[in-house]
Simulated assay, not measured.
Amino acid sequence: MTPSDIRITAEPIDNGRCKFLVSEPVHAGGVRRFASRDEAQGSPLAEAIFAIPGADVAEIIVSGNLVTVVKQSAAPWPVVGKAVGQAIRSTLAGDRPAVAAKPAPAAGSPTADDALYERVADLFDQQVNPMVARHGGRVELIDVQDAVVMVRMAGGCQGCGMADVTLRQGIEAMLHQHVPEVRGVVDITDHTAGSNPYFAAAKK
């Protein structure tokens, strides 16, 4: 595989967040979240994205063929996105895995994230999914890492123009009320693949 074989589409959420949908698998080992350069060590893709000049990248989430980048700079996504695209292509075409496997916790020692996962899953079953089901949607709890909840939307929520409003004003607000230890929520959905996508994907 050469870099030119890899196709990437960008889905800006706002000036601080953008999803990049890649034609090739980026990481098949579940969800990986990187919140610093130190955490990115050993994962060439995360290292390269954190190193983009002027982007001030704060967070990277990788799942399957989706890469979500959170930045703090005012640089526009058309500029930063080109550098992200180059990082994705070069690392996927390299000899090393673009993203290292998530370190396994010590056997028999449940983590704080494990306990949070159970509480969040219970809230999703009892309140979140009954709420979105009224509009034909469903929200899947994917993982909890460093108290950040990863979700994937489906049904009427996937590709819906109000998906981000549902996430921020509905799901995130509900989590902060009932599970205040949660630090944030990340949507790893490919909204361009929904039945009525609100985003016209742009190639990078």
Results as ranks from 00 to 15, higher is better:
Met1His: 13
Pro3Gln: 12
Ser4Glu: 14
Arg7Gln: 13
Arg7Val: 06
Ile8Tyr: 03
Ile8His: 08
Ile8Pro: 06
Thr9Tyr: 03
Gly16Ile: 00
Gly16Trp: 01
Cys18Glu: 03
Lys19Gln: 09
Val22Gly: 09
Pro25Asp: 06
Pro25Gln: 06
Val26Trp: 06
His27Thr: 07
Gly29Gln: 14
Gly29Met: 11
Arg33Asn: 06
Arg37Leu: 14
Glu39Leu: 11
Glu39Thr: 09
Ala40Ile: 09
Gly42Gln: 11
Gly42Phe: 00
Pro44Gln: 09
Pro44Ser: 10
Leu45Arg: 03
Ala46Ile: 13
Ala46Gln: 13
Glu47Thr: 15
Ile49Thr: 11
Phe50Asp: 05
Ala51Tyr: 00
Ala51Cys: 01
Ile52Ala: 13
Gly54Gln: 06
Gly54His: 06
Ala55Gly: 12
Ile60Asn: 08
Ile61His: 10
Ser63Thr: 03
Ser63Cys: 07
Gly64Arg: 07
Gly64Tyr: 02
Leu66Phe: 00
Leu66Ile: 09
Thr68Pro: 00
Val70Gly: 04
Gln72Arg: 15
Ser73Gln: 04
Pro76Val: 08
Val79Ala: 07
Gly81Asp: 01
Lys82Ser: 11
Lys82Tyr: 01
Lys82Phe: 01
Val84Asp: 04
Val84Phe: 00
Val84Thr: 07
Ile88His: 01
Arg89Asp: 02
Ser90Lys: 11
Ser90Ala: 14
Thr91Gly: 12
Gly94Tyr: 02
Gly94Gln: 02
Asp95Cys: 13
Arg96His: 01
Pro97Thr: 11
Pro103Asp: 07
Ala104Pro: 05
Pro105His: 10
Ala106Cys: 06
Ala106Leu: 11
Gly108Met: 07
Pro110Tyr: 05
Thr111Arg: 01
Ala112Pro: 03
Glu118Leu: 14
Arg119Lys: 15
Asp122Gly: 10
Leu123Gly: 15
Asp125Arg: 15
Gln126Trp: 02
Val128Leu: 12
Val132Gln: 10
Ala133Leu: 07
Ala133Glu: 10
Arg134Tyr: 03
Gly136Leu: 07
Arg138Lys: 08
Val139Glu: 12
Glu140Lys: 13
Ile142Glu: 14
Asp146Glu: 12
Val148His: 10
Met150Ala: 14
Val151Glu: 03
Met153Asp: 00
Ala154Gln: 06
Gly156Thr: 00
Gly156Lys: 03
Cys157Gln: 05
Cys157Glu: 04
Cys160Phe: 04
Cys160Ala: 15
Gly161Thr: 01
Gly161Asn: 00
Asp164Leu: 00
Val165Glu: 02
Thr166Met: 13
Leu167Cys: 03
Arg168His: 01
Arg168Leu: 05
Gly170Phe: 01
Ile171Phe: 00
Met174Thr: 15
Met174Cys: 14
Gln177Glu: 15
His178Val: 13
Val179Asp: 11
Val179Ala: 13
Glu181Ser: 14
Glu181Gly: 13
Arg183Lys: 15
Val185Phe: 02
Asp187Thr: 01
Ile188Glu: 02
Asp190Met: 03
Asp190Tyr: 02
Thr192Cys: 05
Ala193Trp: 01
Gly194Thr: 03
Asn196Glu: 13
Asn196Asp: 12
Pro197Leu: 05
Pro197Asn: 05
Tyr198Glu: 05
Phe199His: 05
Phe199Tyr: 04
Ala200Gln: 12
Ala202Ile: 09
Ala202Met: 07
Lys203Trp: 02
